[in-house]
Design a protein around this nucleic acid. Structure first.
Lengths: 186, 186
DNA sequence: TGTACATCAGTGAACGCGCGTTCACTGATGTAC
DNA sequence: TGTACATCAGTGAACGCGCGTTCACTGATGTAC
């Protein structure tokens, strides 16, 4: 049995559970039809398995954002593409989005891919300023505010899926206009 | 033993655990020096106890926001006061903030006080528009965006307390200017 | 005032459960001669 | 080609643990007569 099979099963189960603490090593082993002890051949302990899943998620999300960013022709399109891709990923895997952002493991061992996701978002913001599509401002501060808004938007939708939150695309657009200043007079 | 003692102990423990699933009825009983079964005299089951704590939190937060709002002289001051009070509450009880916003119980049985918190925030936004301190716009949409930004700001700070997020007051101020339009030309 | 009884907050033992992790093991595959 | 041995992915039993909930109970307090 490959290590990848275990990660895939854990990935799927964590998405349903939406809570890293709720995932049991034994349940994963059961899912893969393996003795519980066999998991230890690939991971030193339960937490390492969860870590591996989180890292996989971050890489996947980074990948989606990069691809969407490359498709944009203008800097604002690239930025919008990145943000939209992140929102789509969260909408597709709400449970994993929660695990990625809210679990204790994330706090202690931040995933490299997640940090890179932040860096590239800031780069996209800077490109908008350089091209004159957004007013010049401190890129770090603007990106921080944009990230907060987007994370809050997703957190609300993921944690209270029943409520009526309106269109994601429109809310993203408002954030780009209001926070980054896309489309405003230069 | 009073019901209140149990709630207070659970309140304190949940703030430390920062995860509703991690709170065990037995641990609460131990904390209050009571037989585990005695908790059932006041609550039908474990979840009801957690619910009670969440409701208490929401009411407390609502209370703080109301008081801070009443201290403001102008509508923008009132709005700023409300938002700042919410941020302060979250900073004081990060674990409970997580439980309030991220737990499964919250999703299934939304707390009345939390809904009221949202309504009164919107009312404060409307007052800014009425007084001409903010440009007229759809209050519901503006409030939704403001809530998302604030929730994201707090979520980032609560879930990754180690990072350098800058001043809360300044970030709140930026949100009020950029999202609500406080201080912009009418 | 004294006695019998009802009420009811609180108890402790017991249930069955799933968990993470350890340990000595098995049995197939590959290698050395 | 045949034999002895090493390697090592995978196993199953066992450990001790804390959990939510049930059940029949106790023992103090209050009430009725």
């Amino acid at each position: 049995v490959l290590r990848a099979e275990i990660v895939v099963a854990a990935f799927r189960m964590l998405d349903e559970l939406a809570d890293d603490e709720a995932l049991s090593l034994r349940a994963v082993a059961r899912e893969v039809s393996i003795a519980a002890t066999s998991v230890y051949l690939h991971f030193p302990d339960r937490d390492a398995l969860v870590q591996a899943v989180i890292e996989r998620c971050s890489e996947d999300m980074l990948d989606h954002a990069d691809r969407a960013g490359e498709n944009g022709k203008t800097p604002p399109d690239q930025l919008r593409g990145r943000v939209t891709a992140m929102a789509e990923w969260a909408h597709k895997h709400p449970g994993l989005y929660k695990v990625m952002h809210e679990s204790k493991l994330n706090r202690e061992h931040p995933s490299p891919a997640k940090i890179e996701l932040g860096n590239r978002l800031q780069a996209a913001v800077e490109r908008c300023m350089d091209s004159g599509d957004a007013p010049r401002d401190d890129p770090e501060t603007v990106t921080l505010d944009l990230r907060a808004a987007v994370q809050g938007m997703l957190s609300m939708r993921v944690n209270e899926p029943g409520a009526s939150w309106g269109s994601v695309a429109q809310q993203v657009e408002r954030f780009l206009v209001k926070i980054v200043g896309i489309g405003s007079a230069r």
